[in-house]
Structures are given as structure tokens and as C-alpha cells.
């Protein structure tokens, strides 16, 4: 049976997302079957930059304005420094030809990595399917994740 790797992406920090995608794409290149389950803040990585759906609830609308999504908007967990640190880090990475998270997502897609969005998080954050990027394969819950994780030899929470 093929080896499996399942990752839970809970955080939307740039550094953590990078680690997650490095592991995922590296594993896929070794013939490992990879699933990435994006939940809570991690779901922000899969959001389109622009909001499509409108929430009826006022507070939710405000929340979506503050908690903005999109792979380009991720911040470093350390040294964000009102954006200066993250900006510099992104530039360092570019100079070293390290793919951006956006590029990592399409790379992951090309390698056949399964990208799953958590439906409960979508409810909480007032997000609809159209608010997520087209690379998302499925919208599912904890049972889907666990059924995959059960058969995985490598399981990580990032």
C-alpha cells in the first residue's frame, strides 16, 4: 500500500505554511499520498484575496474585514513588525528562488496533493465555497480527516 502523509494546517503564519508546503510537496515527490486539511486560521491560506459572499450578520462582516484571507497576506509568526519583517523575509525568499505560498499551492496541485477545507471553520468565519480558491478539492469535516489519518504513517499538526 502507498505511504500516506496527512497534515492539519491550523495556523496561517507564513513560516508555518511554508514548512507545511515544503513537507507536503517533498513527500509527494517521493511517491507519498498527501492530504492537507486546512482548519481554523489555516483556512485563510485558501481564501481568495477578495471576498465574494456577503454575510447578513454585521459582526461577521466586520470579522471578515479584520481577518483577511489570501496566500499573499500571510504574516510571519515572529518579526512581522507591522509588515516590515514579513516584507523583508518575502524578499529574501524571492532572492533565493524559494517559491511563494501561492506558487507552492499550484505546485502542490500539480503533484496531486489533496487539499481539503474544513466546513465548520467556513461556517464560523462566514465563508462560502466561492470565497475559496479553485485549488480546493473538497470541503469536509473531521471524519474525512480521521479516515485518511488512520491509514497514514505520518501525521502532523502545523
Amino acid at each position: 500500500m502507498k505511504d500516506k502523509l496527512t497534515l492539519i494546517i491550523f495556523s496561517d503564519n507564513l513560516d508555518r505554511a511554508l514548512a507545511a508546503f515544503n513537507l507536503a510537496t517533498g513527500a509527494a515527490s517521493m511517491g507519498i499520498d498527501v492530504s492537507m486539511f486546512f482548519t481554523f486560521w489555516g483556512l485563510n491560506i485558501l481564501r481568495k484575496k477578495k471576498e465574494i459572499s456577503k454575510s447578513k450578520n454585521f459582526i461577521k462582516r466586520i470579522f471578515k474585514k479584520i481577518n483577511r484571507g489570501g496566500a499573499d497576506r500571510l504574516k510571519l509568526s515572529k518579526f512581522h513588525m507591522f509588515g516590515i519583517g514579513t516584507f523583508l523575509m518575502k524578499n529574501f525568499m524571492k532572492e533565493l528562488n524559494i517559491p511563494s505560498i501561492k506558487e507552492m499551492i499550484s505546485l502542490a496541485k500539480n503533484l496531486g496533493i489533496n487539499i481539503i477545507a474544513c466546513n465548520t471553520t467556513m461556517e464560523i468565519m462566514g465563508l462560502k465555497k466561492e470565497d475559496l480558491i479553485s485549488e480546493v478539492d473538497e470541503i469536509a469535516g473531521v471524519a474525512t480527516y480521521l479516515s485518511k489519518a488512520k491509514d497514514s504513517r505520518i501525521n502532523l499538526f502545523i
Binding site: 515544503n22 513537507l23 510537496t25 517533498g26 509527494a28 515527490s29 517521493m30 533565493l96 528562488n97 524559494i98 517559491p99 505546485l107 503533484l111
Partner: peptide
């Protein structure tokens, strides 16, 4: 040349 982990193994696998 100039590529870092995991890019070399990904490219090698593709090739």
C-alpha cells in the same frame, strides 16, 4: 543551481 529543499527533489522526481 541555486534551488533549495524541497525543489531539487521535486524537479528530479518530475524529470
Amino acid at each position: 543551481y541555486g534551488l533549495f529543499c524541497p525543489m531539487p527533489i521535486i524537479k528530479a522526481a518530475e524529470k
